[in-house]
């Protein structure tokens, strides 16, 4: 259990992993704050949330869910490939992951555009006409999916770095921490999406 303080002489794989998990905790609570706001307003404006949710396109939402679930699997394969020492396969699956991530964002972009075209965006007079519940529903929808999309973009940048690090040999079979941690981040984005999907698209 006790570890000598000689971290320069000997590599402690637990250190980057623990750091990443602690960071993930903060990310979870960052979204947690928004989930608290969502819960309170859903409690107050339950019926309006119910009606407003009908405006969202379940098909697009489902497609995006599938994309993210697939990308989580490709990430997992990319990680196990590097752990087995197959750098090329790992790189290929990272690229597939990035393509899936971009597909998700493109999808999201068009979905947002349709909503904005219908005047369903914060500050619009159309939305104000629908009443408080709808205003808050779409405010939360844009804030939460927007923050999620921002995390996806950050994730894509991180994968770009991962590719470079595989290329330059900074990330190897012996030191896969960067890819493992990027994977943790990507899976976190997936977990958050699962809850966003359930809470925005799956209101009966």
């Amino acid at each position: 259990m006790t570890n000598t303080s000689a971290h320069s002489e000997h590599y402690d794989a637990q250190i980057p992993k623990m750091g990443m998990w602690l960071f993930i905790f903060t990310e979870m609570l960052l979204f947690g704050g928004l989930f608290i706001v969502y819960s309170i307003y859903r409690y107050i404006y339950g019926d309006a949330f119910h009606l407003a949710a009908q405006e969202l396109n379940l098909t697009i939402g489902t497609i995006n869910s599938m994309i993210l679930l697939f990308s989580s699997t490709t990430v997992a394969i990319a990680i196990s490939s590097i752990q087995r020492g197959n750098k090329k396969l790992s790189a290929i699956f990272i690229i597939i992951t990035m393509v899936l991530g971009i597909a998700f964002l493109v999808n999201k972009y068009f979905e947002w555009q349709v909503k904005i075209g219908h005047g369903l965006y914060p500050g619009s007079t159309v939305l104000a006409g629908f009443g408080h519940g709808d205003t808050l529903f779409f405010g939360l929808y844009f804030a939460m999916t927007g923050l999620h999309a921002l995390h996806m973009i950050i994730g894509l940048v991180i994968w770009g770095y991962a590719l470079v690090f595989i290329q330059t040999g900074k990330t190897t079979q012996d030191r896969p921490a960067f890819i493992e941690n990027s994977g943790l981040y990507w899976h976190l984005i997936d977990v958050i999406w699962i809850f966003l999907f359930s809470l925005f698209y799956l209101i009966t």
Binding site: T26, L29, L30, G32, G33, L34
Partner: peptide, 8 residues
């Protein structure tokens, strides 16, 4: 565990 809440 508390700072992210004020962040958001």
């Amino acid at each position: 565990l508390a700072t992210p809440i004020v962040g958001i």
